[in-house]
Design a protein around this nucleic acid. Structure first.
Length: 353
DNA sequence: AAGGCGGGGCT
DNA sequence: AGCCCAGCCTT
């Protein structure tokens, strides 16, 4: 056992967390946990994992559910393509692998939503196969200990780090090795303010010895924020409410929302009612706005949404084709962005009073 | 190679 | 306000 493995495994024994997907390494559970944890903190994903496997205990039950049901379990977690891909991949397993979770790296990698990282994680943790999982934690830990300044979001960097990770991999215990590096990155070698005074790698850590902890890892990517203006219509028709599905290739794809008028800038109510999209939604001109909320700012990683809710009473003749008319009691069946859900919950609560 | 995709926590 | 999180897919 190399010095690196010795230090790491010793640290892991003392600091390993009890996480639900570590109790039972069946591939289905490991797979679901890895998808949920993509770009998602353990604290945020844990409850989702427990609810997901309770609702869909087997690959078969997942494959035979509707996409709406799967998206509903994902509501509030973000990056919803993960849920759509999980659903699709469950059907891949039923159709291509006879309902048995695939047992080789290339087969696992062929599942929709499973990239190099997730394939390596599942293959090593569930099947003991010698593949190094390289995630954000691994980039950070290796870049610091070995003093590597190659940008982790470049193809050169991805290649360099994955090759180093494969060299370091403990091929006798690839699963626990991968888990240990990631756990070390998550708990000890943290992105900001790591407590290097209690780090077992303090002696050999290149970044620490050069006082370059805050400089590593290097990322070049700079994200640009796009501003968007959403005017949501809360249309009341007798006791029902109106939803529509977002089918565009955009945020919240396939989730449901209130009918939306997006504009290029913030609109006054006067500007809204003469807006082209507003007119195209309604057959008659006699629409009156009952009330409108102030602008709510909703922040996404790449977008800043300026959102307003417009309340309108509707006559029956004005139900649009693409609109779904539902009773409020059925809202729990529809996957809805958290932003919309919060608004509707608030409306419902007021009604109860 | 670059851009798009959520929501939340931390500094 | 900016960065990051057990990344992946599309163009």
């Amino acid at each position: 056992m190399s010095e690196f493995h010795k230090i790491l495994s010793n640290w892991y024994k003392q600091n390993k967390r009890d996480l639900p997907w570590r109790l039972n390494k069946v591939p289905y559970y490991v797979w679901i946990s890895e998808i949920i944890l993509q770009q998602t903190r353990v604290d945020q994903g844990t409850d989702y994992f427990l609810r997901f496997i309770e609702r869909f205990p087997t690959i078969d039950s997942l494959a035979n559910s509707s996409e709406n049901e799967v998206l509903k379990m994902w509501q509030g977690l973000g990056y919803y393509s993960r849920a759509r891909n999980i659903h699709f991949a469950a059907q891949q397993i039923m159709n291509n692998f006879n309902g048995k979770f695939p047992v080789t790296y290339p087969e696992i990698r062929s599942l929709k939503g499973v990239g190099d990282y997730t394939a390596a994680a599942v293959a090593s943790i569930s099947f003991g196969l010698p593949y190094a999982a390289v995630d954000g934690n691994v980039y950070r830990v290796l870049s610091r200990i070995y003093g590597i300044a190659t940008p982790t979001d470049s193809s050169k960097g991805k290649k360099e780090f994955s090759e180093l990770a494969m060299q370091l991999l403990d091929k006798q215990n690839p699963g626990s090795y991968n888990e240990a590096v990631m756990e070390f990155g998550a708990l000890q070698c943290t992105p900001r303010k790591p407590d290097c005074s209690v780090c077992p790698f303090e002696q050999q850590c290149v970044a620490f010895n050069r006082s370059e902890i805050t400089k590593l890892p290097v990322k070049t990517n700079k994200i640009k924020i796009r501003h968007r203006f959403f005017n949501y219509l809360y249309l009341k028709h007798e006791k029902t409410i109106i939803l529509e599905q977002r089918l565009e290739n955009d945020i919240w794809q396939n989730l449901y929302q209130l009918p939306l008028i997006e504009s290029l800038k913030a609109l006054t109510l006067e500007e809204l009612i003469v807006h082209e999209k507003f007119h195209s939604l309604f057959k008659t001109e006699s629409i009156t706005i009952e009330s409108a909320s102030n602008e709510i700012l909703h922040l996404l990683s790449h977008q800043k949404l300026h959102v307003r809710f417009i309340e309108i009473s509707l006559s029956k003749s004005e139900i649009n084709k693409n609109w779904i008319k539902i009773a409020p009691e059925l809202l729990h069946e529809y996957p809805i962005p958290k932003l919309i859900d919060n608004f509707l919950m608030e409306k419902n609560r007021n009604k109860m009073e």
